[in-house]
Design a protein around this nucleic acid. Structure first.
Ligand SMILES: [Mn+2]
Ligand SMILES: [Mn+2]
Ligand SMILES: [Zn+2]
Ligand SMILES: [Zn+2]
Lengths: 155, 155
DNA sequence: GTACTATATAGGAGTAAATCCTATTTGTCA
DNA sequence: TGACAAATAGGATTTACTCCTATATAGTAC
């Protein structure tokens, strides 16, 4: 139910990298080292990092990379359908390239975002007439509260 | 289903103002003109305004009010249980003092937030063991897409 | 009503996140 | 291999708060 200690294996990483390269070509987007690095870095984590978190990680291997490029590229990933912006209330944008159906719990104290998957949440039916008025692009069930670690800290 | 053209009637406005004053006293918070004005202004709208939007509206009647007070007070309202911060992905915080069960649709183009109420969404059951690990404080179903007005504009 | 005090406010400074600008570089394709 | 549109770096700017502090005021005690 609640997913933990995620690490992608290298076969999967390469497979998705190939998929990503194909997707770039398909959309007429250049396959730059920065884009690849950002996408691959995002695949390696389940921490739903912000642009700043990604920037700090990436500059270890790519000292010249700019924060603007990280920001721009994360939005590009989103527009390509290669990543999601995680829902939340306030705070900085957080990114996720796990496109499998799943849901999020966000701790309002430490701001960690935890993955979980509850099948019934995938299948909730939209109100019958809402499609007549709006074009629905995304439907999410989102939980907020205090995580186990923060609960423990408070005694 | 989708709610529109909301205006609170003055009886309701006064009733909720009384409730708010009671709530302030109960929590030992002073009933200042600014607090009252901000709460009352928020009650009059279903636009889910940001602090900035509230500030611009309020300074018409309270020329001296400060943006910091608006921001602080909106957070106070949230902490008192008199308002919610609307969920969303990115963008500035948006506030809502309609505490009746309802859901939101947000247009990713114009950023408008529309209320709707779909009873089945009130009743979705949490995954069975999630309470063992996390303290769940909020559960929301949230829709995103393009609103009718923005759809029309695109031809 | 007057005095006291903790709380709240105004206004400005400071900060964090994201976006914009522009000269330079680079991936793609002919 | 060269041309060019697209992308990047790095700095400036904007946006959305948050912090600071002197002043004002709501609540209470007399
Ligand atoms: Mn996720
Ligand atoms: Mn609402
Ligand atoms: Zn936590
Ligand atoms: Zn719209």
């Amino acid at each position: 139910m609640i997913k933990e200690n995620y690490t992608i294996n290298s076969a999967e990483l390469e497979k998705k990298t190939e998929w990503f390269i194909g997707k770039c070509r398909e959309k007429g987007l250049k396959v730059t080292p920065q884009r690849l690095a950002i996408y691959r870095e995002l695949m390696k984590t389940d921490e739903h990092p912000s642009a700043e978190m990604m920037y700090n990680k990436l500059r270890q291997d790519y000292p010249g990379i700019s924060l603007d490029t990280v920001n721009r590229t994360l939005i590009t990933l989103h527009e390509m359908g290669a990543a999601n912006i995680v829902e939340g209330s306030g705070d900085s944008k957080r990114y996720d390239c796990n496109m499998d159906e799943h849901q999020h719990f966000k701790c309002i104290k430490c701001k960690k975002i935890y993955d979980f998957h509850h099948k019934p949440f995938d299948d909730i039916k939209l109100p019958p007439n809402i499609n007549k008025k709006f074009k629905i692009l995304r439907k999410t069930v989102y939980l907020e509260g205090i995580c186990d670690i923060c609960l423990e800290e408070n005694e």
